[in-house]
Amino acid sequence: MSILMNDSTRVIVQGITGRIGSAQTHWMLEYGTRVVGGVTPGKGGTTVEGVPVFDSVLEAVKQTGANASVFFVPAAFVLDAFLETIDAGVKLIVIVPEHIPVKDVLKMRSYAMEKGVFALGPTTPGILVPGMGKMGIMPASLFAPGRVGIISRSGTLSYEFAGILSESNVGQSTVVGMGADPVVLRNLADILELFENDKDTDAVIVVGEVGGEQEEKAAGFIARQMSKPVAAYIAGRYSPQGKKMGHAGAIVRGSAGTHAGKHEALRAAGVEVLESPIDVAKWAKKHKLK
């Protein structure tokens, strides 16, 4: 029925007592998400939006049976809180905050991989399963239940694609923001694999952008392992050339990163490349998606 989240997902909100954490807890609850607790060290014993707040992740997990966590923790404290969350046994973590130092992200990613934790972000809008729940900040009004999966590097563009599909009466199985940072906690191909194995997803849209080599690497996975139709859009055709990480980056990545290079790699893998976001409606119609 969905990837990553399902009806046994019990969510805690870290940083729940902050301005954004509490506002987003309200929206998550309103959408039907099972938010079972929140964590802010020093604020244990209080409640936010009727949700009990704990001083530590371990306590929250013990008291509520939580198995997933969404972060609204200030960037400087994310690494510490992330390690705490993994040590408390949580297996699905969504890191919404932006501006987390890359050095911290490298450590987070390494520890999550080692412990078999599925983490998304940083700078992600999170996960939304239409009609069931969401972990993160996606605005619910744009989404509708259906059978198309969306993976996006950009948060706002994931809303755009879902919105265009919903207006065309095409729903989504799960919408996943992988995070907009140069280093993210999970690569695109890992999320594609979940959609390929999900019996309630018929096709997948990849919303990428210039820079990095996620789309190029994913193209290899799609060519080898995906049976479901995949469409892709790459933002940034007219963008001034982004960071290429010096000569070392160019050497390690070869020609990866450019708009043209991404189009070429995706087309070679049999992906239908969309020139403009609105083309996704035609693509969905062509494949009779719902």
Binding site: V207, A235, Y238, S276
Partner: peptide
């Protein structure tokens, strides 16, 4: 003015089809 880098880049691409953006 856009809220998000991806949305901003896509907006530039779409504006760029018939007009020219003054900024990102």
């Amino acid at each position: 003015i856009s809220s998000g880098a991806g949305l901003g880049m896509a907006s530039m691409d779409i504006i760029g089809q018939k007009m020219k953006p003054a900024n990102f």
